[in-house]
Design a protein around this nucleic acid. Structure first.
Length: 722
DNA sequence: GCCTCTCAGCTGTAT
DNA sequence: ACAGCTGAGAGGCCC
């Protein structure tokens, strides 16, 4: 393969991921050694939020008040259940009836979130004096004028949707953690009981051990309802701001969390008769959303016509067959009423993922089903017929409303179906494995942009961090004394360092529950073995990744597998060097400052992860020698040598986040830098993280502030990389 | 009008 | 294979 000099026009985001340095000659003594940081700067986002608030205006205040009263009611209703649901109380530790502004200490470390002014964007659009349900126009599709006026708010709304789902995922993982703890305890108790039983050979009392997990997804939803974290808690007709046709959800729970379809079990979501008391425009019940489950893969693509079977008459506990006649009531009646009153219905299609295995043979993901919003449909007609079992079933014919964006195959189908299954199927393959066999799974490179296509060159692949000669790397710390795998978070020393909690859940091969200041993993001197969950980030690449060429951003990375939120993607490797030694390096875009300490302390414009101070000050005393309150002393240079992480691009609204991890030693200055999934990431979506440059922080050779345009394309893009 | 009770509805996950 | 939990709607109760 012949290396090719890049055309500078290819690099509007300068020299990111290029293997050949661009414009070197123009830079004499450039101060612009651009360094990535683990915490992002929020200025631009905050500004956008403020503008949004201003736009909402004072009118909304009154409406919010009204809404607030309703929230209090809902919270009261839910308070009992919440107590029953377990110990984890979620963020804000909400007291009944008090609406809590939430801080989204999740994922990318973004602040704000859903809670603050929950449903705010929507409410300004939705609220009419007589509480008429939200509807953009008679067809349910906004006219162009409205569309323009709403587009800016929709951007914010899309972000709110994303944040809400992150909150849901966080609650979900907390409850998985709680359940794993409970099951672990139950297992240990039952084993102990067995032992004593056999030793005594006496009849022990019946010990009921509930092994199965108790639906952490449902608990997460309960939690969100209690905390008023549901983005759109009131049912609405028509589209919801921030969710356009083609939007993918990864569980029924996500849709409930957003308020897109308000039940995790029912197929038909409808507004009941009680809505008629406050709004006499319609005859209720009327349907607002339906889920077509599992029958989609045999359907014709872009099918605009749907025949939907009504609900009822099923044998719920047994074989799920029809055992009774369906009646024209509840959801069925709601759909019928939609015909007569010309009310559009949101149609969501559920698809099964074809397989859950990655090429390494391990079970790779948690998503077995995804749900795609297919747009607004109108119910054309309905009829009753005798079903296969001989009982009456109601059928509803729905037709997609015209004027909505057409679904492409990629949007409609789960993209996994399009993923290559072998190297022979890969289009534009330029390198079968850039790792040279160093990773568990080969990482191919593809190039459909350049002519002739070239492979990434100019670096040596290394799957672990190499230490520069002049750096004294800390010695390995003493570890925990656990045997086998660490289970008891009250005795495992590594868990104690994490605040008496394991930071990971075992589900899907290990997932980080939430972003932390720093994660203490088990290391070489620990008593546990390599299967211990507290070594999650040390297990190498888990997903089938691909390096691919883009037109504007150089190289980029995507996964062929679904990556669940909280799963580790890769470590950032390279040469661990002193930051001051890097000042003389020209145009190196691969330097990552290890700024764990600065993030914990919120120094240098970095956003703190733990607002509530979950990182105890005594620990900070223990792991910090107070010698470096200014700039990070050490960095990782992935320029000459590095791994897959060096190809991952920046994005202002990324799907990965940076997590500092300590495993072999406990020196924060030398923390490992690991990238985790902030969201559920579908196959073939580009992987990105926030480089975290502070605006105006990079100076050019002339001493002036250097500005570089960002081309990430995110709706909330800050327009500048730095 | 408010409160309480009943029951339809089918997914997610472990085995 | 099986646990899971909301919310519509009906009925009862009180003012």
């Amino acid at each position: 393969m012949v290396p090719k000099t890049e055309k500078s026009s290819d690099f509007e985001m300068p020299a990111r991921n290029s293997d050949e340095t661009v414009e070197k000659k123009n830079v004499a003594k450039d101060m612009s050694v651009q360094r990535r940081a683990s915490a992002r700067i929020q200025a631009a986002k905050q500004k956008a939020e403020e503008e949004l608030h201003a736009r909402r205006g004072a009118v909304v205040v009154e409406e919010e008040k009204e809404k607030e009263e309703k929230r209090v009611k809902v919270a009261k209703k839910w308070s009992k259940k919440r107590v029953r649901n377990g110990e984890y109380l979620g963020e804000g530790e909400v007291v009944v009836g008090v609406a809590s502004p939430k801080k989204g200490n999740n994922g990318s470390g973004n602040e704000d979130g859903v809670g603050e002014g929950e449903g705010g964007v929507a409410s300004s659009l939705a609220k009419k004096p007589n509480r008429r349900p939200f509807m953009q126009d008679q067809n349910g599709v906004g006219d162009s004028e409205n569309a323009v006026a709403n587009s800016a708010e929709n951007k914010g709304a899309a972000l709110r949707v994303k944040e809400t789902i992150r909150v849901y995922n966080k609650h979900y993982l907390h409850f998985v953690q709680e359940e794993e703890k409970r099951c672990g305890k139950a297992k240990a108790e039952s084993e102990a009981a067995k032992k004593s039983k056999s030793s005594k050979s006496k009849k022990a009392g019946p010990l009921e051990v509930k092994k199965t997990h108790q639906r952490p997804d449902l608990k997460a939803l309960s939690m969100m309802m209690t905390n008023n974290e549901i983005l759109y808690p009131e049912k609405r007709i028509g589209d919801l701001p921030g969710i356009e046709a083609g939007h993918q959800f990864f569980s029924r729970g996500e849709m409930v969390a957003v308020g897109f379809h308000s039940h995790w079990l029912n197929g038909i979501d409808y507004m009941g008769k009680s809505y008629g008391k406050v709004n006499s425009i319609y005859e209720y019940p009327i349907a607002v959303a339906i889920v077509l489950s599992g029958q989609y893969e045999d359907d014709v693509d872009n099918a605009d016509d749907v025949v939907y079977t009504g609900q009822g008459g099923h044998n719920l506990t047994g074989d799920k067959r029809q055992i009774n006649d369906q009646k024209l009531e509840r959801g069925n009646l709601a759909l019928k009423n939609c015909i007569e009153q010309d009310v559009p219905v949101r149609v969501i299609r559920g698809h099964k993922s074809s397989n859950g295995k990655s090429s390494n043979g391990k079970s790779s993901n948690g998503a077995t089903k995804i749900y795609t919003y297919d747009g607004l449909y109108k119910v054309i007609k309905y009829w009753a017929e005798k079903g296969i079992s001989g009982f009456t079933v109601y059928k509803f014919q729905l037709k997609r409303i015209e004027g909505q964006p057409l679904m492409t195959t990629n949007q409609v189908y789960f993209t996994r179906g399009r993923v290559p299954q072998s190297t022979a199927e890969i289009r534009g393959l330029v390198c079968e494995d850039i790792t040279g066999g160093q990773e568990n799974i080969p990482i191919p490179a593809t190039n459909l942009v350049d002519d002739p296509p070239v492979a990434p060159t100019g670096f040596t692949y290394c799957n672990s961090v190499k230490v520069a000669k002049n750096v004294k790397f800390p010695k390995a710390a003493t570890g925990c004394k656990c045997k086998g795998v660490c289970i008891d978070s009250t005795t495992c020393e590594c868990a104690l360092r994490n605040g008496s909690e394991f930071p990971y859940v075992a589900q899907n091969g290990g997932r980080l529950v939430e972003a932390k200041d720093v994660v203490f993993e088990c290391g070489p001197n620990c008593g546990c073995d390599e299967t211990c969950v507290n070594r999650t980030s040390q297990k190498g690449i888990r997903y089938r990744l691909e390096v691919f060429r883009t037109a504007k951003k150089g190289w980029a990375v995507r996964s062929w597998d679904f990556i669940p939120a909280g799963a580790p993607v890769c470590e950032y490797t390279g040469i661990l060097a002193r930051t001051e030694d890097m000042d003389s390096v020209l145009e190196n875009n691969y330097i990552f400052e290890i700024d764990c300490l600065q993030t914990i302390k919120g120094l240098g414009g970095r956003e703190r992860r733990s607002q509530s101070g979950t990182f105890p000050s005594n620990l900070l005393d223990k792991y910090d020698d107070h010698g470096s309150d200014g700039a990070p002393e050490y960095c990782i240079d992935a320029g000459p040598t590095g791994n897959i992480a060096r190809f991952i691009n920046h994005c202002c609204e990324p799907n990965l986040f940076v997590q500092c991890v300590l495993s072999t030693h406990h020196n924060l200055k030398f923390a490992r830098v690991v990238l985790f999934a902030a969201d559920n990431i579908p196959p073939l979506q580009e992987l990105t993280y926030d480089y975290g440059y502070e605006l105006d922080s990079v100076l050019g050779p002339d001493g002036k502030v250097k500005q570089v345009t960002c081309y990430c394309g995110a709706p909330g893009c800050r327009k500048r990389l730095f």
